[in-house]
């Protein structure tokens, strides 16, 4: 999926992307000279990266040549034991209150790795949670359910067409998975709405979420209001950010929505003001 409001655009592609910081670049041109794919060129005092070439690159020579730190990758490969080492590093501190939350991108696209990681954590009594868009084969859920304590599940829009337009996927599979999880997942399943004014904050959409919650017997919802903190990262990826044209939700409308949920017996948490 590819949602226009995404605040982690570097996670949309499954491959790590080259991130470029204009302010650090001294336009020395070293990177351009080293790129075998001729993906970088400097013109009129501006550096351009041709992303279509760049995506296929294995060596990333450009980064090694950039000594000012203007180029870096948005991600890297890590082995399971190493990652687990980082996770347990501050275990003493969070003790019985904390745990692991996997997020993305869509974590369940890396099923094998995620499954082994969740399994390891589960065995070692680390609380596990996952944030998912839901748009993945049911089997992927089935594989990890035994090792999961919590699932955060996005409901972006009840209107399948609007959903398709905004995220490049319809909501059919998502709703199916949501329903199945509510009967087959024994842990805590929390639905979430990334609230985008003008896209999914209509009364109609909220009402259909309410009835969906009724059908699935859920008593809580978490609203995540739109923010623009990811804007800078779009610049570094040299992508355009269309989410920027949507305003962030105002307090009153959030309150109205909260009241709507409360009236139908659903606890509504906004942002990070949650009991979890």
């Amino acid at each position: 999926m590819n949602c226009f409001w995404c605040c982690n655009p570097e996670g949309i592609s499954p491959k790590p992307a080259l991130m470029y910081s204009v302010s650090k670049c001294i336009l020395c041109g070293e990177c351009a000279g080293k790129c075998e794919h001729h993906a970088i060129n400097i013109e009129d005092g501006k550096l351009n990266i041709s992303r279509s070439f760049c995506l296929s690159c294995e060596q990333q020579n450009c980064i090694d040549e950039c000594y000012s730190g203007a180029l870096r990758l948005s991600g890297y490969e890590i082995s399971l034991p190493k990652l687990y080492g980082i996770i347990r590093r501050d275990r003493q501190y969070w003790g019985s209150e904390g745990g692991l939350t996997l997020t993305g991108g869509e974590p369940l696209l890396q099923l094998d790795f995620v499954k082994s990681l969740l399994q390891k954590c589960h065995e070692d009594y680390i609380h596990t949670a996952i944030e998912t868009c839901g748009n993945i084969p049911w089997n992927n859920f089935q594989e990890v359910i035994p090792y999961l304590d919590w699932i955060f599940f996005d409901l972006k829009n009840s209107d399948s067409n609007l959903h398709l337009k905004a995220t490049s996927a319809d909501n059919k599979l998502i709703l199916e998975n949501a329903k199945r999880l509510s009967t087959e997942f024994p842990g805590r399943l929390i639905f979430r709405i990334p609230l985008i004014p003008g896209f999914n904050d209509s009364e109609e959409n909220i009402n259909s979420v309410i009835s969906f919650l009724k059908d699935t017997g859920r008593k809580e919802i978490n609203i995540l209001p739109l923010h623009h903190l990811g804007r800078e990262k779009y610049q570094m990826l040299q992508k355009s950010y269309t989410g920027g044209s949507h305003p962030v939700p105002v307090k009153e409308s959030l309150e109205t929505i909260r009241k709507m949920f409360n009236a139908s017996g659903v606890d509504c948490y906004i942002g990070s003001e949650t009991p979890f």
Binding site: K15, P16, S21, S23, K24, E58, Q60, I63, G69, R72, L73, Y76, E77, I78, S79, K82, E232, K233
Partner: peptide
């Protein structure tokens, strides 16, 4: 692809 040890110490901190 690069392994984590290559870039685990980064000098970039423009993003928090």
């Amino acid at each position: 692809m690069r392994k984590d040890q290559d870039i685990s110490v980064q000098t970039d901190d423009s993003l928090n």
